[in-house]
Design a protein around this nucleic acid. Sequence first.
DNA 1: GTGTCATGCGTAT
DNA 2: TACGCCTGACACG
Length: 266
Amino acid sequence: MPEGHVLHRAARLQGKRFNGCEVAVESPQGRFSAGADQLDGQTLEVIEAKGKHLFYRFESSDVLHIHLGLFGKFRLSRPPFPEPSPACRVLMSTSDDQLHLAGPNQCEILDPEATADVMDRLGPDPLRGPADGAEDFGRRLSTRKIPIGRAIMDQKIVSGIGNVYRSELLFMLGIDPFTPANKLGVDDVERLWALTVDELKAGERLGRIVTVTPDDSDGAKRRELAAGERLYAYKRDGKSCRRCHEPIVCADIDGRNVWWCRSCQH
DNA sequence: GTGTCATGCGTAT
DNA sequence: TACGCCTGACACG
């Protein structure tokens, strides 16, 4: 269940184990057998993330492109390796480490040009720290009349934000999700970019999304907050706002739910 | 066991 | 706007 922080964390943790290693690749499920054969025995040079996409660059210049979609999951293990699930699309191993992938939306081999095309289609990624990120993000928002709550889910505008971060970021800045994207002030755009960078980084480090900060949690550290205490808005409809105690509300934008506080966000 | 739901996205209508 | 795609966890009987 991946937003951008999950993919960057995967690139970092998997990279520690596999970058520079000759890997065995198979597809127990069989749906990626030809691709697995092509990669089997090659040296994996580096794993890279942009937005919600992962790119595994191999010595031959083959690039394994993975997008987890809604269901995809990675599992890393050390020997003795567990039995792969029947749905295991890709199993990548060295003698010391094994990566198990099930349920990806996309799993394909690209050449470097096609890889660049995929990356170019994505908006700036807050976790890649582009120097002009805020300006680029602002430019992409400025021409759009769609609600900001829809715009920040559009991976061509900013890459890596998903449904949890959408509700959380807008709550934290007091922005109504239905505000037209092009009506956001320069200050709000900058604050939104900066907060997105901070929150995605925190999620990458922690391995989970925790936005509630000590001020709103009696000083408890983020890492220690129990499930149900970690978020401000996401899936909290009917519960009381952690800041003003009015009820959190929920609406559908493009078939995905958004949660917000009518009193704090406008 | 069956049904439902989910942190996503592309394509068709 | 609807549907298809991919999997697994959990609620319910």
